[in-house]
C-alpha cells in the first residue's frame, strides 16, 4: 500500500515536471525542472530496489550532463526571435508524427510484455554473486558484454567527434 502511494506520487511528480520542462518560457528554469525530473526518476529506482542505478542516475544525469546543458543555456543568448523555424505548420506536423510514433512504440512494448509473462528478465539463480551492484557488474560483463562494449565505443566516437568539432586547428 505504502509502496503504491509512493509510486503514484513519484510518477505524478515526474510527469508534472516533464510538462513544466516543455511549457516554461525561461530556458534556465526549464533545465532546472529537468534536474528535478531526473531526481524523481532516481527516487523511482530506489523504490524498485535499484540503488546503484539511482546513484548513477543522479551522478551522471543530474550532476553531470545537465550541468553542461546549463552552461550552454547560460552562455548562449536565447532571447533572439527564432528565424529558422518560421513555418509553424511544419513543426506541428513533425511533433504529431513523433508523438504518434512514441505512442505506438509504448503500446507495442506494453502488449508484448503482457503476451509473454513467462520470460524472467533477471536470471538471478544463475549468478554466482549476490548484491545489487555486484549483480549488475556480473550481467554487464557476461550476458551483455557485447552491447556494453558497443555502447562504450559509441561514446568514444562521440567524444572524438566533439573534440574535432570544437578544435578547429589540430
Amino acid at each position: 500500500m505504502a509502496q503504491a502511494i509512493a509510486f503514484y506520487f513519484i510518477a505524478a511528480c515526474i510527469l508534472g515536471f516533464a510538462v513544466l520542462v516543455v511549457s516554461t518560457k525561461d530556458t534556465v528554469h526549464s533545465v532546472l525542472f529537468l534536474v528535478m525530473d531526473f531526481l524523481f526518476v532516481a527516487a523511482l529506482y530506489v523504490l524498485l530496489g535499484a540503488e546503484f542505478l539511482a546513484a548513477i542516475q543522479v551522478l551522471v544525469y543530474a550532476g553531470g550532463i545537465v550541468v553542461l546543458y546549463l552552461f550552454v543555456v547560460m552562455l548562449v543568448n536565447l532571447k533572439r526571435p527564432p528565424e529558422a523555424h518560421s513555418d509553424p505548420h511544419r513543426r506541428t506536423m513533425l511533433g504529431f508524427l513523433l508523438a504518434a510514433a512514441v505512442l505506438v512504440e509504448v503500446g507495442a512494448i506494453a502488449v508484448y510484455g503482457h503476451s509473454q509473462p513467462a520470460m524472467v528478465p533477471v536470471p538471478g539463480a544463475a549468478m554466482p554473486v549476490t548484491g545489487n551492484t555486484a549483480q549488475i557488474g556480473w550481467l554487464l560483463y557476461t550476458s551483455y558484454l557485447i552491447p556494453f562494449e558497443i555502447a562504450s565505443m559509441l561514446l568514444l566516437v562521440a567524444m572524438i567527434g566533439a573534440i574535432v568539432l570544437a578544435k578547429r586547428e589540430l
Binding site: 534536474v35 546513484a55 543522479v58 546549463l70 545489487n132
Partner: peptide, 23 residues
C-alpha cells in the same frame, strides 16, 4: 550498499548551488 556512490552523486548535485547563484 552503495554508500560511496551515494556520497559522490549527492556531492555532484551541490555544484548547482554555485552555478545558479552566479546566474
Amino acid at each position: 550498499n552503495v554508500g560511496l556512490l551515494y556520497i559522490v552523486s549527492v556531492a555532484s548535485v551541490g555544484v548547482y548551488g554555485i552555478i545558479l547563484a552566479g546566474y
